[in-house]
Design a protein around this nucleic acid. Sequence first.
DNA 1: TTGTCAACCGACTAATCAGTCGAATAATTT
DNA 2: AAATTATTCGACTGATTAGTCGGTTGACAA
Lengths: 191, 191
Amino acid sequence: MTKDVSEKKQAILKAALELFVDRGFHNTPTSLIARQAGVATGTLFHYFKNKEELIDTLYLETKTKMGQAIQQNFQNTGSLDERMRQLFKDIVKWGILNPKEYRFIQQFSNSPFITKLTRDTALDHFEYLTNIINELVGSGELKTVYPEFIEDFLEGVFNLAITHFRRHPDKISEENIDLVFDICWHGIFVT
Amino acid sequence: MTKDVSEKKQAILKAALELFVDRGFHNTPTSLIARQAGVATGTLFHYFKNKEELIDTLYLETKTKMGQAIQQNFQNTGSLDERMRQLFKDIVKWGILNPKEYRFIQQFSNSPFITKLTRDTALDHFEYLTNIINELVGSGELKTVYPEFIEDFLEGVFNLAITHFRRHPDKISEENIDLVFDICWHGIFVT
DNA sequence: TTGTCAACCGACTAATCAGTCGAATAATTT
DNA sequence: AAATTATTCGACTGATTAGTCGGTTGACAA
C-alpha cells in the first residue's frame, strides 16, 4: 500500500506548497519551484504534465493527508455533542499544526482554479463528515435546518477557528479551542 | 465631496474586478483589463502607477463601498440582539447582491498580496463594527471571550453565510437569512 | 491665435514564463 | 554484458507580460 514515491517528486510538491502560500500560484514560476526543490525544470515536467496538474495534485494530496489525519483519531462512541467536539478539536489542531497546508487549501478554494471535479474528489476523503452530518440532521438535537447549510456551517466554523488561531497564536490553548467550540455550537449569547 | 472620477478609470476598475474574480490576479494581463474596459494600455498606466496599485485601489474602494452601504442602513436603536440581527442581515444581503465584489474581497484577503497596511486601512470603514464589538463585550450578554475572537468570529460567520448563499442561490430568502443568524448567534443545538 | 496641460492612444521592448528536447546517466531486464 | 527503460539535466524557444514612450487630441487659458 505504501507507494514508493520518488524523493524528487516529494521535494517538488513540498517546494511548491511553500512557494504557492508565500507568492500565489501565478506568481510562482515553475523554474523557481524546481530550484527550491533542488531539481531541474525538466524533472518537474517529467513528474507533472504541466503546472496545473502539479497544483491539482498538491491540492488533492494535501486534502487527503488532512482527511486521513483526522479520520485516524475519529471515535464513533460517546454523545453526538462529545463526538462533534472531538472532531472539531482534531480539525482545528490539524490546521494549527499544519499552517501552510491549511493556508494552501484555503487559497486554492478561494481561487478561480477550483473545478467542481477537484472539489468533489477532495470531498471523498471526508465520508465520516457526511455521515455525522446525516446523523446530526436525524438526531432531532439540532435546530431545523436543511443539510446543505450544515455542511457550509461546519466548513465555516472550522475555517474561522483556524484563521483566528493563525492570526493570534498567543491565544492557542486547549481551553480556548474548547471555548471556540462552545461558542460555535451553543451560541455566543448567554441565555 | 463627490469626486468627479474619470469614466475611463471607473471602467478600468470595473473590468479589473470581473476579470480578477474569473481568472485570478496574475492570470489577468493588464492588456486584457484595458481591452475589456475599452481603453488603451497606456491609459491604464496613466491612472495607476502599476498593476499592484490598481489591485490595491480596487480592494480599498470595494471595501469602502461595502462599508458605506452597510453603515447607511445601520440603526443605533433597539436591543443589542436586534441590532446585531439587522447588521448581520445587511452585510449578508450586500454580499448576495454584490457577489463579484464579495468574491474579490475574499480572494484578495486569502491571497499573499494583502499587507498589514491594506488590511488595516480597509478596517477603518468599519468603525461601527468595532463599536458594536466593544458594546457586545461590555454588555454582559455574551459568553466570556476576548475581543480578538469576537472580531474573527463575526468575520467568519458573515463569510460562511454569504458563501453558503452563493453556493445555494435557491436557498436565498428572508426567512433563511434569519435562520442562519439564529444558528450563528444562539447555537446550532436545541437545548 | 498661441501655448499649456492632462487625457489618451497603441506600437514597442525588455523581461519572464511554461514547456520542449536531445543528451547523459542510472536502474532494470534479458 | 547488452539492451531497454526510467530518471535527470539545463540550454533553449515561442509566447506572453508589465510597463514605456513618443505622439495625438481636445479643453482651457493667456
